[in-house]
Design a protein around this nucleic acid. Structure first.
Lengths: 197, 197, 197, 197
DNA sequence: CTCTAATCGAGACGGTACGTCGCGTCTTACG
DNA sequence: CGTAAGACGCGACGTACCGTCTCGATTAGAG
């Protein structure tokens, strides 16, 4: 994602290194927050030379973005129908179930300093989906809707994963739906409250 | 806020220094993001010795928190009625109007790296208000409600201030109300949509 | 010694402060080396305001010099006959006896970083004595003789005080005499050894 | 000398850096006293990064010791016979001649604050020579003899190099011999004077 | 016995140097 | 050729101490 590598065998090696780095960062993210992970930590854990890191990524952020892009991409396939309003409830349930399944990973991603990067990547991908069919008929600017929904989702998930006694997946899904998704779904402009005719 | 200084004349000097530092940081925040402001930048701008910074604050975060606490405190007095549900619409309007009035300051606070600190301080103060009358009758855990609302408010305001052609105060207030406030107000538990009898 | 104070009563107070500072430094010198004693240490120990130090001495060196001058002055009254060659043996004995009596103090003075200052003061006072009757008839330049003797005395005493099982005063006196005093006493120029006709 | 570096190519670079630092310090010592040379001065002059200094030496003293050890080592090869009493006169001459030849360097070493370090290193190396054949037959403890001789030599040389019109090498050699060497050579214990049978 | 001025305590402050940490670059040897 | 190993330049950090400063409290001698 960061560089274009042409020759095939090289790409393999490069890929192997990147995977090692990504895995190392993931492992470390489950131990401590992103700000307290140094590049040396990552390369040591990845069994990779220090300088090698910079041949693959310009800096720590880039690796994190790559990692985040991957994870968000996976997550988004769960969330996609959500943005087309087909059945937001079950979309939310799918999303929560997925996160819960990988909660150790997502705890690392969302409760350390990596959250902003995650959010950024989530936003990027969501906004890209939005671009094509610009349905400006809503009372709400599209990018604000996405920004709001993504932030809310991230934040609510983070809150969830931080709890000592986390709520059930089903309850979280409903909460997510009511707080993050429903508010951007209502189509008409009303005085202040939300009417359902 | 960070230390208690006893003797009066000294406190004056200390206060002067802290004000200088706070003002300097505020000014710099309007120029560039928090991560790109060094402590030396602050002290230079504040016409204060470098070491003096550390006599007043343990690190940059502490100063930022002090500053954020002040600003949030001011903001909260606008927002207070909002959390008691009296009239969320006009509360939102007051809040938006206030932010708009000081939009240069708040642009610095919300669009640089300072936003997390701001949010944290907002949360702290809001949660403190929540503590006393713990109305757990809601379907929504109180701290999640606050976390959601605060995050949403911050995020929406940040989006607003980043726009080239920002919406009118009135419209933003309504948006804020519908996205950040109303969702946590509905008291009953419903299937998925939001009903208004 | 450092400033001229006019009014008499003031001088008393000043003197009291200086005595307190001097005593404090002396006490600290018995604990640790001069380089590791800060001015704040001294003023704290002396029960004196930090700034007051600078009202009496321009810096730590000045206080040390004052202190050294006093102690050396006392020591020199023991050593004086030594430089007029009357009876170097008994002069050495007197000197060693005196140092031994105050060995705790002199250990502090000679084995910490204060030794150079001590030596300097010793030199100053000894050279001042030398000035008047400039007997250049010796084969040895007067100031070199004094420099040598003083350094040797200081060094030998320092060695003595550092020993776990120090030699007797009598033995040290003889050693001092043979190493530091006799070598500058022989008046004629000889091939290499020292003749006694 | 401070660390053992294993890999060969690295050692080359390290060595280059250390040489640069040593040379820079030497050059600076000929300009001003050690206490007034900051580490930044040294690194700037050596065209080396500030932090790199600390990768090679824990502090300024360590560099000075390394440097002193080198120079003393060179000097000691001149002085060695001196300590075995073969021919102290010509040993002294050799020593003085050597110092005179490099008098600019040695002026820096001996008349700035570096002298104590030099002396210490001289002592270390001389005492190490003393260790093996501990000839305790002398009336004088071996370590005192060495301490005295070394101090005296250093001091006399320092005096020499500080003179505006320095004495001839020959004369200094004799002085050195009579003041610093002969006194520790006489083997028997006498009343006070020095007898030559 | 009070009044007044010098001195003192307390400690904040500007400044310099230190030593540390992490980043990103660079060199060198090796597979 | 590309990679591991790790030294290096750089810049920010936080600490320690110095010497200066301001300001209220103390105190001692003069009236």
């Amino acid at each position: 994602m960061t560089q274009n590598i042409s020759s095939k065998p090289v790409r393999q090696r490069v890929t192997r290194t990147r995977v090692a780095l990504t895995d190392a960062l993931l492992a470390l993210l489950e131990e401590r927050a992103q700000e307290h992970i140094t590049i040396r930590d990552i390369t040591t854990r990845a069994q990779v030379g220090y300088a090698t890191f910079f041949r693959n990524y310009p800096d720590k952020e880039a690796l994190l973005h790559d990692l985040a892009a991957d994870e968000i991409n996976r997550l988004l396939t769960m969330t996609l129908p959500l943005f087309f309003g087909v059945d937001s409830e079950s979309s939310c349930r799918a999303l929560c179930a997925y996160v819960w399944e990988h909660r150790k990973l997502w705890t690392g991603l969302l409760t350390g300093g990596a959250a902003p990067t995650l959010k950024q990547e989530y936003l990027n991908q969501a906004l890209r989906l939005l671009d094509e069919p610009d349905q400006s008929k809503s009372w709400l600017p599209g990018d604000l809707a996405v920004t709001f929904a993504v932030t809310a989702i991230i934040e609510i998930l983070a809150w969830w994963l931080k709890q000592e006694h986390p709520l059930a997946v089903k309850d979280m899904a409903e909460t997510l739906n009511r707080l993050a998704v429903q508010p951007i779904m209502s189509t008409e402009r009303g005085p202040s409250g939300i009417k359902k005719p």
